[in-house]
Amino acid sequence: MIKGLTLLRSASTPAAFDRLGSFFAALGFEPGPGWVNGANRGSSFRAPLATIEWIDGAADTPADLLIEVTSLGAVRDAAEAWLRAHAAEGATEAETLQSLQATLSRIEPTVWKTELFTAEPVPGIRIAFWEWAEPLKGKPAAMEGDLVVTGMRFAIVVARWNAVITDRLLQGSLDALLRSGARREDIEIVRVPGAWEIPDAARTLAETGRIDGIITLGVLLRGETAHYEAIYNEVSRGIGQSQQETGIPHAFGVLTCETLEQALDRAGLKAGNKGFEAASAAIEMVSLKRKIKAAPVQGSAL
């Protein structure tokens, strides 16, 4: 299972290392765990999505690192503000403007139907920031949630039964939340004996008013049990009813499998991690719900 992409670049000097970290932090990147190993140190930054792209033939690429953003103008303003604040000490306004012209480009259209600008926070490291010029591409506008979790609080209800599976699902959910910028103190983990108890715990959490989204994790194996379908029906009904009656988004991460091998595959071995997917869905639904509530009313009242 492919989990993520990491791009490694070496800063030429300790000062360049610190400068790059400050630049990425100023643009709103989520900081990842850093590390120190003797004389070496590392600093990481995360983004919700990553892409690796190979090109067949010559390509006129503006930089080694391309970062897709929304609100390209606001990102450029942030980059310019940072470059001004970190101009050479004692530089005049004319010298600062000359430096900006050399390290920060204007927003320009590209042949691949995007708009783009480049920034060079340290010499030799040029970064391109881009945004689709026509993000809708002829399609009707749609309101969608995103994977930014600023100010959101989540609860994860996870069953202890079949912990070899549910612990993997829990790890996937935490990975999705933390990668999207959630703070650990905003994630509440509640363990229940088995899948049957998940709806009750989820309902109790939803009614507290302190949770924005709930992720339910468990596993039901058919095996030789005659009551498999009865349990699954009640668990799914209870989770759905809790969501509808409390208005709190509930993500369904309860696996229903024929065998243990199938469950392992869906918990990260071969078929992705359903805990990660459930957490991503919860983030998106909380985001969408907030957008719907904040959207202006269309039309006039009758």
Rank of each mutant, 00 (worst) to 15 (best):
I2Q: 15
K3M: 06
G21H: 05
F24E: 13
G32S: 03
W35K: 01
N37P: 00
A39G: 05
L49W: 15
I52F: 14
D56A: 07
T61C: 00
E68M: 07
G73H: 06
V75G: 09
A78E: 09
A79K: 09
E80T: 08
A81I: 10
R84Y: 00
H86G: 05
A87C: 13
A87F: 11
A91E: 09
T96L: 14
L97F: 01
Q101S: 10
L104T: 00
L104F: 04
L104Y: 00
P109G: 06
T118K: 05
A119R: 12
P123K: 02
I127Y: 02
I127N: 01
A133I: 02
P135V: 11
G138W: 04
K139T: 12
K139L: 14
P140Q: 10
A141V: 13
E144Y: 09
L147C: 11
G172Y: 04
D186S: 08
R191A: 13
G194L: 12
A195G: 11
W196A: 10
T204A: 12
T204I: 09
R210A: 10
L217S: 01
L217T: 00
G218E: 02
L220I: 15
G223Y: 04
G223N: 08
T225F: 07
Y228Q: 00
I231C: 02
I231N: 02
I231E: 03
Y232S: 14
Q241P: 00
G247K: 12
L255G: 04
A271N: 14
A271R: 14
K274P: 02
G275L: 14
F276V: 15
A279K: 10
A282P: 07
I292A: 05
